[in-house]
Amino acid sequence: MPWPLLLIFAALIFLGFAAFVGYKMVKPPRFVGDWTPRDLGHDYEDVTIETRDGLKLSGWWIPNGDKTVIPLHGYTRSRWDEVYMRQTIEFLLNEGYSVLVFDFRAHGKSEGNYTTVGERELIDVLSAVDWLKKNHPEKAEKIGLVGFSMGAVVTIRALAEDERIACGVADSPPIYLNKTGARGLKYFANLPEWLYHFVKPFTKLFTGGKELNMLEYADRVKKPLLLIAGENDPLVSPEEVREFYERNKKVNPDVELWVTDAPHVRTLKLYPEEWKTKVREFLKKWLE
């Protein structure tokens, strides 16, 4: 085969591989577990939340106190996650909050073909608040969010976009999404970070998602926000979270930053009592 044809053939194989990787990134395997809030000692209701763009999200409504907190899982996980979601749900219930928890689109048991890792997932959170306001308005006067990774991105965005949300905790929030995406290739698939430059166009092609500029939200969030970052996070540099914090602090006197030595979304696992104390005091201050 002539060299020009060999080069074209190699380029097509490379692009095909990049497209395959992009497809796998936006269509992660669905994580579904078998525990329920009843295992935590609480009755609950299976609920379906219809999003503003027509998807059906699967979730649990766990009535408890008169304030509600919505925990938000990360990329590739779901409400059944046992690294941080189960512990967070149990903690919030023990603190006397009602909990509304659901699987983001294309995760768990929710509808949706593709994830946009924080872009359209904002619609999911706003729709969950719609559901809560309609079905349980007596428990929706003050609403808090506790988000992890992708859920932390959505927490930050929701604080800027929805006046109904009072405060938010953002644990391990990606700030430079391209950098986190490149690191994710290495972290999740052991692929070189430079490959992300070729993969990214395919992720946008599959999902139609828009690119997020999280630093823009540092100028827009003016509600209580607790940022949590880890020095040993392979996906999100603590310096990037600190940059967001320093910028947000100029317009938001109620932003806090807590940096630990934990890996990605592992502060709760490694330092459970410190995490609970920090989040307890934050939620008590701004919800009660």
Rank of each mutant, 00 (worst) to 15 (best):
A229S: 05
F14D: 10
T260I: 06
E274K: 07
S98R: 13
F91D: 14
V236P: 02
K179E: 10
N64A: 03
F14L: 08
N213K: 04
M1A: 14
T260M: 04
V154T: 12
K284I: 15
E82A: 09
K250L: 09
W194P: 01
L93E: 03
E240L: 13
K285L: 11
I89T: 14
N178M: 12
N252W: 12
P2H: 12
R247K: 11
P2M: 07
L195M: 05
S98K: 12
T116W: 00
A166Y: 01
A229F: 04
D130W: 06
A189E: 12
G65M: 00
G16D: 05
F206N: 00
G59N: 03
A160V: 15
K269E: 12
P272I: 11
I62M: 01
L7Q: 07
A10E: 10
T68C: 03
K179H: 08
V26P: 00
E281F: 00
T203S: 01
E82V: 10
K186V: 13
K249F: 11
G108S: 05
G168P: 03
L215P: 06
D34I: 15
A11Y: 13
A160G: 10
D46T: 15
L191Y: 01
D81Y: 09
E95D: 09
S172F: 09
K179F: 04
I8D: 04
L55F: 06
K142G: 06
K210S: 08
L185Q: 09
L205S: 03
I228L: 06
R120E: 13
N113W: 09
V125Q: 01
I228K: 04
D130F: 07
V255P: 03
L15P: 05
Y44E: 02
K222D: 12
G144A: 08
E231I: 13
H264C: 04
G96Y: 00
L270H: 00
N178H: 13
G230S: 07
P192N: 07
F188P: 02
S78T: 15
L226S: 04
M1T: 14
V125W: 03
E163C: 02
L185F: 03
L235Q: 04
R105W: 05
E216T: 13
P4F: 04
H136E: 08
D66A: 05
Y196A: 09
P29Q: 10
V265R: 06
M150S: 09
K179S: 12
V125K: 00
W258V: 15
L215Q: 10
Y196N: 04
E138I: 14
L57Y: 13
L185T: 13
V251A: 04
K249T: 14
P173C: 00
V279Y: 01
G184T: 11
